[in-house]
């Protein structure tokens, strides 16, 4: 019921944004176009009471990076997954920091480990790895640099 209302609201206000809906899995999943994604997240937070962002992460899908947002609404006892795909040539995405503050650190981690650049982020620096690290380890084609600061590891 709630999911139908969300689909309706998103379709009316941002036509063409909703690519597909999957209700067969464990949690209802919306696949959106990255362009209006953050606007939709604002709508979900303000009008559908999704007050917390449980998890924000990414996954390497070969030519694309899949961004995955797990939302939760205590009022409706409803989980929702929002996904969007980014092309690896243009790994840029609007930040969700203004929607949920938790996104600040989640996005720093995604930037660090996947290399997605979040436009408008207040403090986009590496969080897990040192600032001079080369590469983004969670990409499937990542190969560690042979040397870091004079340290070598023989594999």
């Amino acid at each position: 019921m709630l999911i139908q209302q969300i689909i309706q609201a998103v379709g009316d206000r941002y036509p063409g944004t909703l690519v597909s809906v999957d209700q067969g899995g464990q949690i209802p999943t919306l696949l959106l176009n990255p362009k209006w994604l953050v606007r939709v997240l604002f709508v979900l937070r303000d009008e559908f009471d999704f007050e917390s962002l449980m998890c924000e992460t990414a996954s390497d899908k070969g030519e694309r990076i899949m961004m995955i947002y797990h939302l939760f609404s205590t009022k409706h006892r409803q989980k929702l997954v929002v996904k969007t795909e980014l092309l690896k040539e243009d790994l840029r995405m609007e930040t969700a920091e203004e929607v949920w503050r938790a996104a600040n650190w989640y996005e720093r981690e995604i930037f660090d480990l996947f290399g997605v650049e979040f436009v408008g982020h207040s403090d986009l620096v590496r969080i897990m790895l040192p600032p001079d690290w080369v590469g983004h380890p969670l990409l499937k084609d990542y190969a560690p640099a042979p040397e870091y600061q004079g340290m070598k590891i023989e594999w």
Binding site: M54, C55, T57, S59, I68, H70, R101, A102, N104, W105
Partner: peptide, 27 residues
């Protein structure tokens, strides 16, 4: 929370742990 993506092989394709202290430190 844990998020696991499986591609049908014997190894997970993506595994992500969302940990509570991470969020607590951000605040």
């Amino acid at each position: 929370a844990v998020y696991i993506e499986s591609d049908g092989t014997d190894k997970p394709y993506r595994i992500k742990f969302k940990t509570p202290s991470f969020n607590a430190l951000a605040v």
